[in-house]
Amino acid sequence: MSQDRRVDSYDRGRIEDVGRWKDWAKHKPGMWAFYLHRFTGLVLSFYLVMHLTVLGTGFWLGHTEYTEIIHGLESLFIVKLLEVGLFAAFVFHALNGVRIVMFDMTIGLDVQEQLFYLSIALSFAVVMVGVPFFLL
């Protein structure tokens, strides 16, 4: 509809649409919360698919093989480290998710920045508590 009315204009391309990364330092907390929420959400969804696939094949191979697969993975330090990352992604996504559900009930919209900082601080604290459980 607007297409026919559009005069000779310069289309600045898709990069304008996705985000102004050039000005990332100018992004406000609400936008960072969105970026982090989306990133952790995609990470968790990807992990969900991998989790079900690996677990499934592991179990269908038999009990001994299942145990071996788990122990083989857990003996790698990088796997443990990635699990800490996964835990961090879950904790932030959960806490920021609670923040979003609060907004949906129109609670705390005035203190959204503080709530974002709170969710970051709480995530950090919970993940720090969790680190020994994952790495030991």
Partner: peptide, 9 residues
């Protein structure tokens, strides 16, 4: 709406 709050800012 993703509650980015950009519009409010």
């Amino acid at each position: 709406c993703h509650t980015q709050f950009n519009c409010t800012e």
